[in-house]
Design a protein around this nucleic acid. Structure first.
Lengths: 214, 214
DNA sequence: TTTTTCACCGATAGTACTATCGGTGAAATT
DNA sequence: AATTTCACCGATAGTACTATCGGTGAAAAA
């Protein structure tokens, strides 16, 4: 065992991280309603009153959580994009566009669970964050589809592209959750379905583009 | 104005319905966390303690709400099926399969909001109901797709059909919510997208069926 | 008419959580 | 070595909600 001659600030930072980690676990297991200073402090191994040494109140902790979540998400989206670019063919690139987020969700399912919950809960402190995240991911995906060659020239096509992105996102989340619940054991099959779904939608864009050029 | 010589049982039933209605409104506006006997009773115009004349506790009211919701949903699914059958062509039938639920959601968006929230909230008393509802709707939609001629013979195709149904359902909900939020003003466009999405997925089933018969 | 029933009331005990307080000891500074 | 700082502690006042109590008056039953 290594001895632990922690400086005061190091020790404080460690406790703070413990609080955040504990909050995340409780948030996932019991939801925002079950998240109390009593439980978080106990799980982090400190007194309830000491919670306030680190955060002004629970809102403050949740704000921090949202900021960290946002940072992680932006990093993940950047990485996903550069990874997908490595794919040799258009087909592979299209497929990677779905495989990567599916795997990301399965690596940290609690983040999606928390986000999906907050998105629809008007009382949630994380709601604004969840809505922003959703919008960011929708735009990201719309850009991905556009990068595959389905450029949207007019207002209507841009809206369509966004609808497709939103629909496909929702389907991605649903299938990932289904996988985690054990209903769809093979993640590759889920990716197949998503590719097929988006193919159908993109065919719509292509056909309307062809119509226009007639 | 008609005079109101209500019998005792009629008056009680009226109060009960007022409580349920108030609970639904609060559930939609503030979420399950904001649902208290104080607020529900006040909104229904009775004393907080009188809440217990009608329900054992809040769980009891939520159970009643879930049962009523279940009854409504089953009725709506029956009606949707018979309505879709009226469509003259296969194409129209396919489109109606999406138009009908989209319109149903927009008629009572609070029901979907409450359900989506409960589905992901482990602390929710309505969670079991939300999960059942989800599963029922998934099966319903899978049956709809099968009725369009995409019969699933083996295990793999059955699972695929279910994944498609789940994905399309999620997309339907997402687009309906987007419409309600004002992002997608035209519900017909949303239906177009959903038809296109499902077309793509069903093409996958058809191609694998063709492959098998080679 | 007399008696019983019961939906509703106000009061209140009990429970859970928040947020602040002064006190303590060890780390950091002087 | 003396002093200051501060992360943490236990205690507790304040707040919000739950669930039960006995009381009341009007409807229903006798």
């Amino acid at each position: 065992m290594t001895s632990t001659p922690l400086s005061r600030s190091e020790a404080k930072d460690l406790t703070r991280r413990k609080l955040i980690k504990a909050a995340l676990a409780i948030l996932d297991e019991e939801g925002e309603a079950g998240l109390t200073t009593v439980k978080v402090a106990k799980a982090a191994g400190i007194a309830q009153s000491s919670f306030y040494v680190h955060f002004k109140d629970m809102q403050d902790l949740l704000r921090e959580l949202a900021e960290e979540g946002g940072r992680r998400l932006r990093r993940a989206m950047r990485e996903a994009r550069s990874k997908a670019r490595e794919a040799p063919s258009d087909l592979d690139r299209h497929r990677e566009t779905f495989r990567i987020p599916l795997e990301a969700i399965c690596r940290h399912p609690e983040l999606l669970r928390i986000q999906m919950r907050a998105k629809h809960d008007p009382s949630s402190s994380l709601r604004a964050f969840a809505l922003e995240t959703s919008a960011a991911y929708r735009e990201h995906h719309a850009a991905d589809l556009a990068a595959l060659g389905y450029t949207a020239d007019d207002e209507r096509d841009r809206r369509r592209l966004e609808m497709i992105a939103e629909g496909i996102n929702a389907a991605t989340n649903a299938l990932a959750m289904g996988h985690l619940e054990g209903r769809y054991p093979d993640l590759e099959e889920a990716a197949d379905i998503l590719v097929a779904l988006s193919r159908g939608a993109l065919r719509l864009l292509r056909s309307s583009a062809a119509e226009r050029s007639t």
